[in-house]
Structure formats: structure tokens, C-alpha cells
């Protein structure tokens, strides 16, 4: 009798452990992750004329506008003879990845209410799929960046000092930091929006504000020079650090401090873990709250 009682495959119970992640289960659902990514990619630009060209248009146009406004009009120097267009493109490409991960995961529960209310699968699959489909978009946008990079370096004289640094080898790690940070942050917000709807409004507006604090269209050193009393805001912002590092690796502007790299890494991983715990807690009860 007792022997049989221990024989159960699994138990559904109300007890909530702090971290109740079943990695085996997530692994079993890996095909679902893949299919979600595929769905996101193929359905996004269905019935549009330009289709996947939108992947290129958005960062290119933004860079052109930024160059006009911030560099030509406001005369923010990009330093070291780097064409400001290339400088902006680098910032926007990396910022886009982070912000699309954040906004994409931040409404996980609200957007998937219908399906979450009917079928069980490990909920983490949904935000993960957002991060992966954005990674593909990021890859495409990185190609655009590479294209312009090659053009400026080899076919014009304007980018004489743009040199990829040895630390470029760390780029995949940096991208992982961005993804983890966006995912973690997004999971925290998505969990909290199930109860407090105000956050939804905060996200779209907050992400925009955060961009200005993330050294996307100016170098960190210029901000430190101009507004030194507030520059700590930018310095402690992990995204600013990540974007600075991205530009250093690809263009050789700014400087590379290993401590900053480590800081960005630690903050991203902590955000990711905190997000995961909160998400996990919300997962079980949210359907009664929404």
C-alpha cells in the first residue's frame, strides 16, 4: 500500500516552492518553443507589401533621423572620426534588441490569457520564445550594420579609425546579457501587470525614457563631460554600459573596462533570476486574477 502511494507520476498541489522550475519539462516542450518562434517570424509581416524589409527599414530610418537631429542639429560629437550614422546604427541595433525583448515579454500574461486559461504548458516557454524570435531579428539587423560598416571602412575615408577590437569575441556574451536583462525585466513586469494594470502604460512610455538614459545617441564620455552631476544615472544603467561596450567592440570608440562588463553581466543575471522566481509564482495563480 505504501509502496504504491509513492508510485505517482506527479502531484498537483497548492504548495508553492520559491523556485519550482522543472527543467526536464521545459526541455520536453522544446519543440513548442521552436514552433512559437516560427509562428512569430512567419506571421509578423504577413499581408504587408514590404514584408521582412521592415527589419531593415526601421533601424535605418531611425539612424538617419538621429544623425540629423542629434549630430547635425545638436552637434553631439561621436568621437574618433566615426561617422555619426554608423555610431547611431550601432546604438539603435543593440537597443532595439533589448527593448523588443522587454516590451515583448512584458505582456506575456495579458496577451496569452486565452491560451493560458485553457491548456497547461510551462509558461516560461512564451517569454523565451519572444527572446529567441527577437534574436533572429537582431541577427538580421546586425547584418545591416555589418554592411554599412564594411561600406564606411573600405569604400570611404570617413571611418579611418573604426576598428573592431579583440574583445569582439565577447559579443555573443554581451548579446546574452541583453537578452537576459530584457527577459528578466519583462517577466517581472508581466507578473505585476496581472494585478496592477497601471504598469502597462508605464512600459511603453518608460522604455522610451529609458532609451535616453542608455547612451544610445551620445557617448557616455560626452555626457560625463557636459552634465557630470547626473552622469551616475547613466553609469549605473546596465543598458548604457552594454551599448557602450557594443560600440567599443565594433567601432573602437569609448573604453573597455572589464569591471563594467562584469557589472552588466551580474545585473542581467540577477534580473533574470528574480524575474524567473516572480514569474513562477504568478504562473499558478494568475488565471484567477486576470
Amino acid at each position: 500500500m505504501n509502496k504504491q502511494d509513492t508510485n505517482w507520476l506527479y502531484t498537483i498541489s497548492p504548495k508553492k516552492k520559491l523556485i519550482d522550475l522543472n527543467f526536464k519539462e521545459i526541455w520536453r516542450y522544446r519543440d513548442l518553443l521552436f514552433l512559437f518562434v516560427k509562428r512569430d517570424i512567419i506571421t509578423q509581416y504577413k499581408q504587408t507589401i514590404l514584408g521582412p524589409l521592415w527589419y531593415f527599414i526601421q533601424p535605418l530610418f531611425t539612424s538617419v533621423i538621429f544623425t540629423l537631429i542629434f549630430n547635425n542639429l545638436a552637434a553631439i560629437p561621436t568621437g574618433n572620426g566615426i561617422p555619426s550614422f554608423l555610431f547611431n546604427l550601432a546604438g539603435i541595433t543593440s537597443w532595439n534588441y533589448f527593448s523588443s525583448c522587454l516590451t515583448g515579454t512584458s505582456d506575456t500574461f495579458k496577451a496569452n490569457q486565452g491560451i493560458f486559461g485553457k491548456v497547461y504548458f510551462p509558461r516560461v516557454i512564451t517569454p523565451l520564445s519572444v527572446v529567441f524570435s527577437n534574436l533572429i531579428k537582431f541577427g538580421i539587423q546586425l547584418l545591416v550594420f555589418t554592411f554599412f560598416y564594411i561600406y564606411f571602412v573600405f569604400f570611404t575615408d570617413s571611418a579611418y579609425s573604426a576598428l573592431p577590437q579583440f574583445s569582439l569575441l565577447l559579443l555573443p556574451v554581451l548579446v546574452a546579457f541583453m537578452g537576459l536583462f530584457g527577459l528578466g525585466f519583462g517577466m517581472v513586469i508581466s507578473s505585476m501587470t496581472t494585478k496592477y494594470r497601471d504598469l502597462t502604460f508605464l512600459v511603453s512610455f518608460g522604455v522610451q525614457l529609458l532609451m535616453y538614459a542608455s547612451a544610445v545617441m551620445y557617448p557616455l564620455s560626452y555626457f560625463q563631460e557636459k552634465i557630470p552631476e547626473y552622469s551616475w544615472i547613466i553609469e549605473y544603467n546596465p543598458m548604457a554600459t552594454i551599448i557602450e561596450l557594443f560600440r567599443y567592440m565594433t567601432l573602437g570608440v569609448g573604453d573597455f573596462l572589464f569591471s563594467r562588463f562584469l557589472y552588466a553581466g551580474i545585473v542581467s543575471v540577477v534580473f533574470f533570476l528574480v524575474g524567473l522566481v516572480i514569474f513562477n509564482k504568478t504562473e499558478k495563480s494568475f488565471i484567477d486574477t486576470v
Binding site: 505517482w8 506527479y10 502531484t11 498537483i12 493560458f116 486559461g117 497547461y120 495563480s285 488565471i287 484567477d288
Partner: peptide, 25 residues
């Protein structure tokens, strides 16, 4: 909903010896 793990019970537990799949809608 509790059986298909969409929402958790407030008290008590359900033990199973097999995988549950639901076809709620």
C-alpha cells in the same frame, strides 16, 4: 481547470500515474 493544471487548488492535491492532456476548448 485544476486537473489540467491551468490553475492550482487552494487546498488538497491530485495525484496521477499518467500524463494529463486537456481539451478544454
Amino acid at each position: 481547470k485544476i486537473l489540467s493544471k491551468v490553475t492550482g487548488p487552494t487546498t488538497g492535491e491530485i495525484k496521477t500515474r499518467g500524463r494529463i492532456a486537456s481539451l478544454l476548448e
